[in-house]
């Protein structure tokens, strides 16, 4: 009786065609598909150091058992409940429990067949080792199958129809592929990728900061040098002016003296002022401009200088310019330079 029931149920299953094909061949197809990809037989960081065939063989075990437990089992048994097959059996001397037992027996056999095919195919085609800790593998397989078939039976017990059984099974199927790690593997890979990218960005940022700090220090040194140079030149001019004024002073300049002939006054002014200007211009402002790398502005400054009405003419009109004419050019430099230096240049103005 039991043999006949088992045989008939097997025949019915075989008539479904697609169902046994999916369970037995889908894991195998995945193994072959991924196993024959170029470079698949190298250990891969993403797969936890496994090769693709190793990973797919293990995954295939899970897929076969999950399809059986969450799809085929609830669909078939909910269909039997819907059709009243179990109730009809309840009116015969054979308890419907036998039908459930036979069903489970067939599914266990199918799972074993699928796993055996996977192991053998992976071993022969890709040299994947047979699970090394075989008792542990067996225990995991049996426990996993028990859990999934248990869920399948619960679905079959509550689903009102075959279609509802399929639907509920599918509803659980996809989250469970996440729970067994398929989804987490993907997430973990993405997480790692993002971390890698962040680390890269950090490194390049650090390099950039270092470079920046070097540049800053160099700028500081240059600014200080420029300041010192400027101060020296200013002092030299002061000394020069003082000496020049000392030489050109006459007793007639004193109070109550006769004014000098106009010509002598002009000669005195020419001796001091224009020279000061010449000293000042290339040595101070333009030099600083050049050091800042403002090459384009320097010739322009010369040009402007040349076009301006000469200081002699201004002298003739009796106008003494209190501020040096290059203040405008100097300003950017004084803004960039460190404070003590800029103070000193201001005082010279």
């Amino acid at each position: 009786m039991l043999a006949k029931l088992t045989y008939l149920e097997l025949k019915l299953l075989a008539r479904e065609v697609i169902v046994p094909a999916v369970v037995l061949l889908l894991p195998l197809a995945l193994l072959l598909g991924f196993g024959f990809q170029p470079g698949a037989n190298k250990a891969q960081h993403n797969l936890g150091g496994q090769t693709a065939p190793e990973y797919m063989a293990a995954l295939g075990v899970g897929i076969a058992v999950t399809i059986l437990g969450l799809s085929i089992l609830p669909t078939t048994l909910a269909g039997y409940r819907e059709k009243g097959v179990l109730r009809r059996m309840a009116t015969t001397p054979v308890r419907p429990a036998y039908l459930l037992m036979v069903q489970l027996l067939i599914y266990v056999a199918m799972a074993i067949a699928a796993v055996a095919m996977l192991i053998v195919a992976a071993r022969i085609l890709f040299g994947t080792p047979v699970p090394e800790r075989f008792p542990a593998f067996l225990a995991a397989f049996v426990l996993g199958m028990g859990a999934l078939f248990g869920i399948g039976l619960v679905i079959a017990a509550v689903a009102p129809s075959s279609k509802a059984g399929t639907g509920i099974g599918m509803l659980l199927f996809f989250p469970s592929t996440g729970a067994v790690g398929m989804l987490f593997t993907v997430l973990e890979m993405r997480r790692r990728e993002i971390l890698d990218r962040l680390a890269e960005a950090n490194a390049s940022l650090e390099v950039a900061l270092e470079e920046n700090a070097g540049l800053h220090a160099q700028l500081l040194v240059q600014a200080r040098e420029a300041g010192v140079l400027d101060e020296r030149q200013r002092m030299a001019r002061e000394i020069h002016d003082t000496l020049a004024q000392g030489f050109t002073r006459r007793p007639a300049d004193g109070p109550g003296a006769r004014p000098l002939p106009r010509r002598a006054q002009q000669a005195g002014a020419r001796g001091a002022r224009p020279r000061r200007r010449r000293h000042h211009q290339p040595g101070g402002g333009a030099a600083a401009v050049r050091q800042r790398g403002d090459h384009q502005d320097a010739p322009a400054a010369h040009l402007r200088q040349a076009r301006r009405p000469g200081p002699c003419r201004r002298r003739r009109q009796g106008v003494r310019t209190g501020s040096p004419p290059l203040t405008g050019l100097r300003r950017p430099w004084s803004q960039c330079a460190p404070a003590p230096v800029s103070d000193r240049t201001d005082s010279s103005a």
Binding site: K4, L8, K11, E16, K83, G84, V85, P93
Partner: peptide, 21 residues
């Protein structure tokens, strides 16, 4: 409204249930 699996043949069904007795 008791039915049988759609793919079970008539003779198979009757012989199966005969084997129960």
């Amino acid at each position: 409204a008791g039915r049988l699996p759609d793919k079970m043949k008539v003779r198979e069904a009757v012989e199966l249930y005969a084997s129960f007795y």
